[in-house]
Amino acid sequence: MKVLVTVKEVGEADDDFEIEGTDIASSDLEYDLNEWDDYAIEAAVQLAEAGIAEEVVAVTIGPERAEETIRMALAKGADRAVRVWDDAFEGTFADVSSKVDVFEAVVDEEEPELVLSGVQAADTAFGATGVALAERIGFDHAAVVNDLDLDADAGVANVHRELEGGIEELTEVDLPAVLTVQTGLNEPRYASLRGIRQAQRKEIAATDLADLGLTPADVESTLTLTEMYEPESDSDAELIEGDAGEAAGRLAEVLREKGVGA
């Protein structure tokens, strides 16, 4: 089967950073592969090593700069990559539906049986692309997957989903499917020097909207960034002192003041 992995290059701000307009100054950002996409790549490469996946294709929406990040995915074992970018994305803040428009077109072209996606992106943290894509392309899906056992013959993915409060759901998802991947699924490998060398010879297909049969209108975003600011940190922590009895009394007093138990 073919596995498509959606990956994103995310910028992580330095400890000290400047805000320029509605963004963090690019000189204060360090770009890297989104952590959760790293787990998704690892899962796909493990499927390939187990002989289940015949091809692993990574796809990203990003400018030329993102090639280095996607090259890292190739160095870790993905076979080839598709990088979608278009002038229409310049200076805009893509919403979930415009990303899904792009990935839907890529899925139409690649016809994967399994799509793996990080549960969220470290920068915008929408956590929506994977499941919204599943809905659009009519695949089954499971979100927040932290354990995967794929039965290719039966066409079923047995997954564990991490739910709130330490609860796990064990469920089966019929293929073709989209799975969004949570921390804990695996331990991503480091790119070996051999992998890095081989990655130089792997294809990263630069693709624009017209190549995918889309127009700028298709990916128009309903979101705009209006402001970027650092929240003022308001710290008035009270350290409760005294023995257990005194401390408990003072804590009860504070909680009552705040309206607890009223």
């Binding site: 790119a191 070996s192 990655a199």
Partner: peptide, 17 residues
């Protein structure tokens, strides 16, 4: 080169991890 930068990234992650 891009290859050299990837190597630095990867070696650094390896040592840290």
């Amino acid at each position: 080169s891009q290859e050299e930068r990837l190597l630095v990234d990867s070696a650094r992650s390896f040592v840290e991890g």
